[in-house]
Amino acid sequence: MPGMHRHRLKRGARSSFQRVVQLCACALFNGYALGFQKGKIFKGPTKAACVPVLNCYSCPGALGACPIGSLQGALGGGKHGFPFYVLGTLALFGILLGRAVCGLLCPFGLVQDLLHKIPVPKFKVPGKIDRLARYIKYGVLLVLVVLLPAFALTEAGAYQPWFCKYLCPAGTLGGGIPLLLSNPALRQAAGALFSWKLLVLVLILAAACTVHRPFCKYLCPLGAFYALFNRFSFYQLQLDRSKCTGCKQCERACPMGVEITQELNGPECIRCGKCKAACPSKAISSNLAPSKTRDSLGHPEKK
């Protein structure tokens, strides 16, 4: 029993660590407190840098630029050449951290994590539907973020940020609602599009109360991009099979439904560390530079 108590304490400590990192990242990316008071956005030079997460640059507190908004702008109409700067920034975070960005740094991920704590009945999406629906985010990345902004131009030849305009819930939550609350002129201008975006936001937030991180699992184009790097990133989880008892507690604890023992660093793992905390035999570890003696699935390397 004392062992179980200690194990529960360890799980709590890991969850608190994740929460502290998430809150610090949220404060860091949205540190312009005056913006919320004045209803205006920050216009300083740090906005030339893309933050690694979905964080609308029209949020009054935002100190950096949203990479997805910037990518659509850079691709807009194909007038600006290849988007080296934005894609390079995204690839840098991808290769360093993979989807740890989603699990530890993303403010909208934090919002979904907190909503999932509300004590309402939880829903598990059936396996086959869940597996297929996870591909939607790659479609969102390809169609709404890349193809439509690059090629579907208005009659005047202007591009549209399709993802931001029609789907992004972070823009409505972090940018739209605070700006409309503090700016009467913008409130007057809000129409059908704002109602649509509000509906999308409400649906995603309501879903997040019952399903863990539905936006990250099924719709987020940034999660789709980082998923491509998950197997190669410097930051990796490792499973020591000599310690693993096959109890599957890690898989039961995983909020993303990853089969830990089969695909530990698969594209859906957000490196939140819940599996690590749940493992009673301490078989899972995380490392910035993967161990020399075990591969990412924990198989000992043959000399």
Binding site: A49, S58, C66, P83, G176, L193
Partner: peptide
């Protein structure tokens, strides 16, 4: 290209907030 990012990020993106 960082200047293009800055130029866009210092303006309120009306599409992003659901106005434009």
């Amino acid at each position: 290209q960082h200047r293009d990012v800055l130029q866009k990020a210092v303006m309120v993106c009306l599409e992003c907030i659901g106005i434009g």
